[in-house]
């Protein structure tokens, strides 16, 4: 009798665009267990939504203990980089329809979500970003000039600006560094993101600290540990040609020497 009061036609129309998708999330809580484990959440969700919306739905409606970073939720702040179906992406820029198995049924593959590799997991999808930012600080990511305080702006031509335009797009999400196998094994390596941000100043015509930055990146854990496997370029959610930037720094080091 109770079913009569429901509105079958209206309900169908409301949920016709929804798809049933399973999200398999790597959970870790050091305060309850020292072991990480996988947890499946099956949601009815619009496949045109983003993975971040699915995470919100899980956190707000299913399990409030699910922990992840996000700030702007629109691909600018770089907080929600994570490993989705084995590739580092921003959860807020990845549409569910692009990565999920929407055929449905019991054999449908789940969307697998893990924290970034190569950094210590603190809880669920949150990793310790300190080594990443340490490498970033080490390349001195700020304008270095000499002489008196300028009385007018630093002039720069459009061509000079274009030289380092690609590397200004970095949002420090760590998707590239978290995709680098050299960084996975040895956190002493600067990682692609730090080199990209050094590149941004090394090739800036207004900056005078290129020599110091090149000297830092010429060291044991600098650009020479890059194996040019292009994981970073694949991972970058801003489409920066990361490996090319690293190669340009190598080239600058060699032409400086010879």
């Amino acid at each position: 009798m109770a079913t009569v009061t429901e509105t079958p036609t209206g309900g169908m129309a409301d949920s016709a665009h929804l798809a049933r998708v399973t999200f398999r999330i790597r959970r870790f809580n050091p305060e309850s267990s020292e072991h990480a484990f996988w947890q499946d959440f099956t949601l009815d969700i619009d496949p045109k939504e983003r993975v971040l919306d699915a995470l919100h739905q899980i956190k707000w409606e299913e399990d409030g203990t699910l922990t992840f970073r996000r700030s702007c939720a629109h691909g600018i702040c770089g907080s929600d980089a994570m490993r989705i179906n084995g590739k580092n992406r921003l959860a807020c820029k990845t549409l569910i329809k692009d990565i999920a198995d929407l055929d449905g049924g019991p054999k449908a593959k789940p969307v697998v979500i893990e924290p970034l590799k190569g950094m210590t997991v603190q809880k669920d999808l949150i990793v310790d970003m300190e080594p990443f930012f340490q490498a970033y600080r080490d390349v001195m990511p700020f304008l270095i000039t000499t002489g008196n305080q300028p009385s007018r702006e630093h002039r720069q031509s459009a061509e000079q600006r274009e030289r380092f335009d690609d590397t200004t797009k970095c949002i420090l999400c760590a998707a590239c560094t978290g995709a680098c196998p050299v960084f996975w094994n040895d956190g002493q390596y600067f990682g692609p993101a730090a080199i990209v941000n050094a590149h941004r100043f090394i090739f800036d015509s207004r900056d005078e600290g290129a020599e110091q930055r090149l000297e830092i990146l010429n060291d044991r854990d600098g650009v020479w540990r890059c194996r040019t496997i292009f994981n970073c370029t694949d991972a970058c959610p801003r489409g920066i040609e990361v490996t090319k930037a690293i190669q340009e720094v190598k080239q600058a080091l060699i032409t400086r020497r010879f």
């Binding site: 050091p30 305060e31 309850s32 950094m119 210590t120 603190q122 310790d128 300190e130 080594p131 340490q134 490498a135 080490d138 040895d186 956190g187 002493q188 000297e215 830092i216 010429n218 060291d219 044991r220 600098g222 020479w224 540990r225 080091l253 060699i254 020497r257």
Partner: peptide
């Protein structure tokens, strides 16, 4: 584990610490 009994701190592997070797300033790798 809780606020009064915190879980042990997990050190990141090979993090930059005060024991990290100083830069060599040579061109050996180049």
């Amino acid at each position: 584990y809780g606020p009064d009994n915190p879980a042990p701190v997990i050190e990141p592997p090979r993090a930059r610490t005060h024991r990290t070797p100083r830069t060599t300033r040579t061109n050996f790798e180049l």
